[in-house]
Nucleic acid binder design. Sequence first.
DNA 1: TATTGTTATACTCTATAACTATA
DNA 2: TATAGTTATAGAGTATAACAATA
Lengths: 141, 141
Amino acid sequence: MSTNDALDVEMAKQLDRLMRRIHGRLTATAEDFDVHKVGPGGGMLLLTIDEIAPAPMSELVQRLARDKSQMTRAVQALEAKGLVTRAGSPDDARKSMVSLTPAGASAVIRIQQAVAKVLDGLLEPLTADDRDTLRSLLARL
Amino acid sequence: MSTNDALDVEMAKQLDRLMRRIHGRLTATAEDFDVHKVGPGGGMLLLTIDEIAPAPMSELVQRLARDKSQMTRAVQALEAKGLVTRAGSPDDARKSMVSLTPAGASAVIRIQQAVAKVLDGLLEPLTADDRDTLRSLLARL
DNA sequence: TATTGTTATACTCTATAACTATA
DNA sequence: TATAGTTATAGAGTATAACAATA
């Protein structure tokens, strides 16, 4: 294994651990904000729907890097909880567009606050400049 | 939601998506290297055991930020596949130390190469300096 | 024929709590 | 009493392929 390979492996470990810590801290306090029990996957999905609504399924699949069959189930679960609605697209009858309900929108606000709190805690060792640097590097990926 | 909160949420989305892309690319080519079908979780575990062997369960739990009951199962699965062995600690009879078998060591090499290849591909938009910066920022978390 | 989305199945991963053994 | 690890159970997440409907 070359030196570069070793560094890549190191970064993969760092990312894996960081995501697990984020996830762990979120679920540890989930009872405070995840009143609909959507879980971390459903939470990220809600945040993304909020960002691009009305969201075609295919774009959610792409943005969240998930499987399309999973996406169908995840959206159906949110729909059953009254957090999102689906409507056919006027452009293309195959597409169904997902939007937030008022209940979904208020869930999004709580989830955003919880995520921000966790991230802010985990990023504590970094200065504001460091955080900007990290964010811009991630954005380029 | 404050501006800082929004930036934190943005970073969470970026990290979530990056991990999913890494995961997706690894599983897409898993047949080339994951001959023992340990999956992504088992792969990360093997890499960590390789790093700190002989590894007490508690340190694996801490480093991988997983639950201890999951760790028991994950290690047992690797043991059943002949990739790791466990031995009691001379210091403390409660501890069991995990080490790689020769088969486990060769699996680690293949996994490292696969991870490095995926990371290298995903990090392509970044220069070598950028990668160093990213790695050092992550290391401080 | 390609794209969008759904269904079905099997499997893995995860969270939680109760439990044993040793310190 | 505290710590290291195991077991049991239920639920959530995931991969895969086969399928229907529209473009």
